[in-house]
């Protein structure tokens, strides 16, 4: 079972990964966007860490809804409402259960990803964060390690794609040959699940 502390570790591991990889995210964004993805995500997840420290929400769902709300209000770029909606909707789907199974998390994250797709009007293959999230959600009920690998593979597979959404879509064919920064950061979020689970927690619950 995944308890509240697991979800706090997930957010902390994501904040650490985003902080560590911020320069790479910004470099990816400089190629096809406006070169602020790393700093925006770092600011957003630093705020998430702060508020989780201060408010200590008491259930898995509450951790994610609080995190999502703070991402929307602190990021300032499009990744704020997108990641904020992802976490908030996932948290809502988890309700106020004190512990959840990894299957329940997979299902809730599926609802969150669907909300992101609806908000941005994007689908698989548009060269967005969905290209990392959709394959990860599919295998998440199995193991977090598998989900991490699927998200990474999905992010790498955005390199040859033509961007159809967001600022990068203005570039048309020139967006081809670059990894999508949103897919890269989404892979960090999914990878942090395996980190939060620890060396023995990568399997199903």
């Amino acid at each position: 079972m995944l308890d509240t502390d697991f979800f706090r570790r997930w957010m902390a591991a994501t904040a650490a990964a985003v902080d560590r990889e911020a320069d790479r995210l910004t470099e990816l964004d400089a190629a096809i966007g406006d070169a602020d993805h790393g700093s925006n995500m770092r600011r957003g997840f630093a705020a998430v860490s702060d508020v989780l420290e201060k408010e200590a929400p008491a259930a898995p769902g509450a951790v994610l809804t609080l995190a999502g709300r703070h991402l929307i209000s602190t990021v300032g770029g499009a990744s704020g409402p997108l990641y904020g909606t992802l976490l908030r909707r996932t948290g809502k789907a988890l309700g106020d259960a004190p512990e959840v199974t990894s299957d329940q998390l997979a299902e809730a994250l599926g609802a969150g990803v669907a909300a992101v797709a609806q908000l941005g009007g994007a689908q698989a293959g548009d060269k967005t964060m969905l290209d990392a999230l959709l394959p990860a959600v599919e295998v998440l009920g199995g193991s977090f390690g598998e989900a991490r690998d699927a998200a990474l593979a999905g992010a790498l597979a955005t390199v040859p794609l033509l961007a159809r959404k967001g600022r990068a879509s203005y570039l048309g064919e020139r967006s081809i040959g670059h990894q999508d920064p949103g897919a890269a950061s989404a892979a960090l979020l999914v990878g942090a699940l395996a980190e939060a689970a620890g060396p023995n927690g990568g399997g199903g619950a």
Partner: peptide, 15 residues
């Protein structure tokens, strides 16, 4: 455009 659209949409949808 961009985050202005998405931010308002997400505020209307959830908050």
């Amino acid at each position: 455009l961009g985050s202005a659209v998405l931010t308002v949409k997400s505020m209307l949808a959830e908050g």
